[in-house]
Amino acid sequence: MKNNYGKDILRFILLVTIQVLVLNQIDFGGYIDPTLYLLFILLLPFEVPGWLLLISSFFLGFSVDIFSHSTGLHAAASVFAAFVRPGVINLVGRPAEYEANLKPGIADMGFRWFFIYALLIVLAHHFILFSLEAFRFEEILYVLLRMIGSTAFTLLFLLTIEYIFMRKRH
């Protein structure tokens, strides 16, 4: 089977650019820190090999880190998000074998599927990101508030973008 990752590479570059040049420069209030670049991990095809998923996620996080003076932080969170992805897919339902050309987006899998899939991965990512960032147990409440606020906004962004660029399969 021929794998074509051209679109994914393009998405990688585009998402990191938007993240560091636009989203990171806008203030949404202290508790909200939307991370749009997660869309890359979400939209990688179902059949992506594990090593590629992990390594590309590491570099995704690392690229964002370079631009925000937070070396390792986003990389750690992204690798964790990539790690839970296969488990999350199994949990919310993997498409049957004969539908091999389906993609993990709203267009193919439906809104409900994508919403739960995205929610779980975003939560995993944000939990690691904000815990590592604060790194103090006394700030657990602050971490939770940031997690909830940011998860809501990240999901909103992800679903909006996914809807805008959705192409119905004929």
């Binding site: 992990l54 390594i55 590491f58 070396t71 390792g72 750690a76 690798v79 964790f80 790690f83």
Partner: peptide, 10 residues
């Protein structure tokens, strides 16, 4: 990869 990232942070 996770350990590599943590080393970078530390």
């Amino acid at each position: 990869l996770e350990v590599a990232a943590l080393i970078l942070i530390a």
